[in-house]
Design a protein around this nucleic acid. Structure first.
Lengths: 203, 203
DNA sequence: TAATTAATTGAACATTCATTTAATAGCGTA
DNA sequence: TACGCTATTAAATGAATGTTCAATTAATTA
């Protein structure tokens, strides 16, 4: 006892959330107890409750944090520049190591499972993807108008693009070794270009 | 007490697994306790342990059962018939209501999260998809040889096809209302055909 | 320095957890 | 009818669960 490391709520709360994340990643959502999180954070279980009220609220705060990292990724998608170059940057970013490593599969999948039961979580996931979807719609429209792609249905192309990228992230977790990641990304970019009907010399 | 409903292990075990599945779906993997499963199955918790040994083993048995339903789906994929018709049947099956409703998102996602930690589960998931992958490779090769599709790289096309279909199932859970499911499937089939470079009059 | 506020812990809470062991009840066979 | 097997439960286990409340310690302000 004694030797209390005193910190402000502003630094302590994120530290506890980080510990929560790590415990989930290592032991699974179903085994991530308040006690373990407190232990990992080097703190008394009471303090966890003191800051978050209940475990449930803590889960929701972590969900928000994780979804925010996705929102950050989306925010970095290109919004200007010449059409063909912009398209190329878009695809390169979606299928980059950075995006692939952005989130923990174990944590995210637990939250997606949770979203099927918890309306609050579901709403936030939905909202996140709606933003992504709207962004792609605008871009795909632009590309079509500029004549760098040829599609019949913008909505359909966007649905396919999102499905391909989400499915690809999923696919990688089970089928891609370290050595094959880059070539897989190339495959996906080629597929995306086919879906979009890219009109370009290099395809 | 009294009024024991006596059943054989052959009927009781599946009944308990079914109860387990339902509890997970309703309350989440993290809240599916042995006691709740027993309650749902109308049975004493001891009996659950008696049949499965430990909760962990019960989880593994349920994983096997769920994966088996996927294997059943894969088994129904077309393996003969004229190339173009076979391709059409393949796509229609992958993007059918039946496939979409085949499994519980909440349960499956919990298991996928689990697979990141549990090597046994991981191995089985991987194995399942390897079968799917091999099947598609054979078919895509065949379609290419028969000239109904035009692709540069079989491996790449298969990766894209799987990614698109898995991502699509995921996509549907958050973005598709009941009314838009059919049109979404149509969009995906069009995208798949573009990926495969289908050489046909109706595209 | 004294008073106030916020961070942190200690100890206890009632529940629930998965599991064990021993007892009981129903069925098939001899 | 008696026996043996298996299904099933009863009861109890210690550990772990999330949470409460009061006490204590450290920093901030007066």
């Amino acid at each position: 006892m004694i030797e209390r490391k005193r910190q402000s709520a502003i630094e302590r709360k994120p530290a506890i959330l980080k510990a929560f994340f790590e415990v989930i990643e290592k032991e699974g959502f179903e085994n991530a107890s308040v006690a373990k999180v407190a232990m990992k954070a080097g703190v008394h279980p009471s303090l966890v409750i003191h800051y978050f009220g209940t475990k449930e609220k803590m889960v929701l705060e972590l969900v928000d944090e994780v979804l925010a990292t996705y929102a950050d990724l989306f925010r970095r998608l290109p919004k200007d520049g010449p059409p063909l170059e912009r398209l190329e940057r878009l695809l390169q970013l979606v299928w980059s190591r950075e995006w692939h490593e952005a989130a923990s599969f174990a944590v995210v999948f637990s939250f997606l499972a949770l979203s099927q039961r918890d309306d609050e979580v579901r709403k936030r996931v939905r909202n996140l993807y709606n933003n992504y979807r709207r962004y792609l719609q605008v871009q795909v429209c632009f590309f079509a108008e500029e004549g760098v792609i040829r599609i019949d249905d913008v909505e359909a192309a966007v649905e396919a693009l999102i499905s391909l990228s989400e499915g690809s992230h999923y696919f990688c977790r089970f089928h891609i070794d370290n050595g094959t990641f880059d070539s897989h990304c190339q495959h996906m970019i080629v597929a995306a270009k086919r879906i979009l009907g890219v009109q370009s010399p290099d395809i």
